[in-house]
């Protein structure tokens, strides 16, 4: 009886290990494809990417900076950022910044916000996130209007809008803090 159970469990584990090894590559490839697609969406045409990572002023994990170059000139950076302020779980987004710190565009990578309300941060669901295009965090305030900022909130999903601003602000603050590093590394 115990033997049968052990054989069943061993067969199952062996099968799963095989499937895991078979799907490991495709899973990594799918994740990489999402990342590359997001970088392409928030930055204008580039021919070279260079990856770096910096610790943000607040928050526990480092942010991934993808410096983009065209014909050797630095044209902007795509920052993979996050926030823990979401309504349910962590929100991750890719923020494109121009060399002078203006936002080029923002696209979400991952979120678990309420369908129908908080998922308006997705580009396909609503044009809400288009207001970040060309936004200059140095001149304007990167917060929702309820908090005295310049960003329109999402009706019935203020928490999500606030969290998204927090994620973008984390990217901008880190960019500002490490600005000289980023500028200097760009011509190496």
């Amino acid at each position: 009886m115990v033997l049968t159970l052990m054989i069943v469990a061993a067969t199952a584990s062996f099968t799963l290990a095989t499937v895991y090894n078979l799907t490991k590559e495709p899973i990594l490839r799918a994740r990489e494809a999402t990342r590359q697609e997001a970088i392409g969406m928030v930055l204008p045409g580039f021919d070279e990417l260079r990856a770096m990572s910096f610790m943000p002023p607040t928050g526990s994990d480092s942010l991934e900076f993808n410096l983009a170059f065209k014909d050797g000139a630095f044209i902007g950076v795509a920052v993979g950022t996050y926030t823990g302020m979401g309504y349910s779980g962590r929100i991750r987004a890719m923020v494109g910044l121009s060399p002078d710190g203006k936002i080029i565009d923002v696209v979400h990578l991952e979120h678990a916000e309420t369908p129908g309300l908080g998922d308006k941060i997705e580009k396909g669901k609503s044009d809400w996130s288009d207001q970040f295009q060309g936004f200059d965090p140095g001149e304007q305030v990167l917060r929702v209007r309820q908090d005295g900022g310049d960003i329109d909130g999402i009706t019935a999903a203020t928490i999500t809008a606030r969290a998204y601003c927090d994620a973008i602000d984390r990217a901008y603050q880190t960019f500002k803090k490490h600005h000289s590093d980023i500028i200097n590394k760009k011509t190496e």
């Binding site: 069943v8 199952a12 799963l16 799907t23 799918a30």
Partner: peptide
């Protein structure tokens, strides 16, 4: 165990 194995297979294949 049988069911859980097939669920995990579905999980991995879908993610990929």
């Amino acid at each position: 165990v049988v069911i859980a194995s097939f669920v995990t297979i579905t999980d991995l294949v879908m993610e990929a």
